[in-house]
Design a protein around this nucleic acid. Structure first.
Lengths: 223, 223
DNA sequence: TCAACCATTTAGACTAGTCTAAACATTTCT
DNA sequence: AGAAATGTTTAGACTAGTCTAAATGGTTGA
């Protein structure tokens, strides 16, 4: 059994790992968990003693297989609850994260698999992030940033690369949602903004920053 | 904001209040929360300072209006989650309680009202206990113990007065569930057992203890 | 190479909640 | 009423997690 604090640390390390191939730094963990480096050090010692991570003083930290397993289970729970909140209770993109942060720590052997079934075994959460299955396997999707499309390309929005409330609220506002069809009408080299048509209807100018953080694909993701 | 431990104490006091009209005893709280009397004393001091309860040393404790409000809100959450678990995820009577014990502490301004709506504003949980509405109002139901019926009476099961796993599993087993029609065929003074017919089909002999803990009414409860 | 800087860890303290054991109230019984 | 039994509270210690401040390690650059 892990405390929900331990789960939070393992999840944070898991998410930071790609950016820190040879060891996630203490300060990076402190930043995402909004805590102090000294608190992180304490927890790393504990997780290391319990066998969840490899921790060498001053060297950063990597996950042991067992630690990764815990992290993936927490992520599975988080994303399934997000689907529930969005699809069944009509919460918007930007509201679901913080509620799911709590729900992800509910412990029950059956609950999450039943929820999975109830939701129809979704493969992606409302932000387009993949949901690991019972065995921790992710379904990958080959996506590309919106800004890398060419004029004339048509694509489907399959995910976001930024999860701040501000960003998500903006997308909700302009009705640029998961599954939206996006046609690139023009690209402006000056400020790298892009003019697009959404779902064959409204035309809108998107900033460079926005286009960098929107993932699209030419195929619709299969549920 | 209350910690989930504080919520547990307030809920316990609320539930014990009817049995202790002039002050719930420390030991009673310790028993239902499976903790020690000394821990309870500490928490009572804290809740008293915060204004949730009236606490006089050695005299037991009563809820202040604000404490009762918190307790009722937690109960509302607990029971709504139980409905969700039973109706949507097909959990059985005896499984839902411990998961709901965790879910009742999720904090979100909107979540519970949306869940309420999603479930169709149920008035009773899967055990037949009333669910307080947004304003903390319960819908009362005039029920009677099964053992107080007379031979020939026909009634509907509307609730249980005991929530142990063993009891609930037994009821599941003999398919004696919320809404079941019960006809009293015979009563035996010797051991106070009762012979009943369930839903016009199977006849079964119910022990005195069982009949004491089953609530019935002549009317179907309106959802 | 060594000083200066930055990141990390240690030391020690704090909070919430829990416990055991001892002290203290209250109730009960004679 | 007084002693015994029972219930309650206090005192002091423990755990998980957090923090600040000081000490230490590692890295960079003159």
């Amino acid at each position: 059994m892990n405390s929900s604090t331990e789960e939070d640390y393992l999840k944070a390390i898991y998410k930071l790992s790609p950016k820190f191939p040879d060891g996630v730094l203490t300060s990076a963990i402190a930043e995402v968990l909004e805590t102090k480096a000294s608190s992180v050090t304490d927890m790393l010692k504990k997780l290391s003693e319990k066998g969840y991570i490899n921790y060498v003083k001053y060297q950063g930290v990597t996950l042991q297989p067992i630690g990764e397993e815990v992290a993936i289970r927490v992520i599975r729970k988080h994303r399934l609850w997000e689907v529930f909140l969005a699809e069944k209770l009509d919460f918007t993109w930007d509201e679901i994260h913080e509620i799911a942060e709590q729900l992800e720590h509910i412990v029950s052997v059956n609950l999450i698999d039943r929820l999975d079934k109830y939701l129809g075994f979704p493969k992606f959460d409302p932000h387009g992030d993949p949901i690991p299955d019972k065995n921790g396997k992710f379904q990958k999707i080959k996506d590309v940033a919106l800004r890398d499309l060419n004029v004339g390309d048509i694509a489907i929005l399959v995910g976001v690369r930024e999860h701040s409330k501000e960003f998500l609220q903006y997308l909700e506002n302009i009705k640029l949602l998961l599954g939206s069809k996006i046609e690139v009408i023009n690209k402006f080299a000056f400020d790298e903004s892009v003019l697009v048509r959404i779902n064959g209807k409204s035309e809108i100018m998107l900033s460079s920053l926005l286009c960098k953080n929107i993932s699209v694909t030419h195929e619709k993701p299969k549920k």
